[in-house]
Amino acid sequence: MMVKLIRSMAEALVGNPGEVQVLETRGGQTSVYELSVAKEDLGRIIGKRGQTVKSIRTILNAVSSKSNKKVVLEIVE
């Protein structure tokens, strides 16, 4: 579910939706998601002062708070 959510938001934000990739590493307490996008889209995903990625993380945390699990979103180059 998280992968689909991250992917849909990322695809809406970038110029090259075809290059959006999300990698999931599940853990007991924490799950880590690695998001990669086309190089020219990095700025769009991070946003001014990281505002965009901060918003994505806020949304992910709202979802994960239901299941008492932690979510970590990393952006990989």
Partner: peptide, 13 residues
């Protein structure tokens, strides 16, 4: 903050 984050993402997109 969650509502604002959603609003921000939709505007950016």
């Amino acid at each position: 903050q969650t509502l604002d984050a959603l609003q921000y993402i939709v505007n950016k997109a």
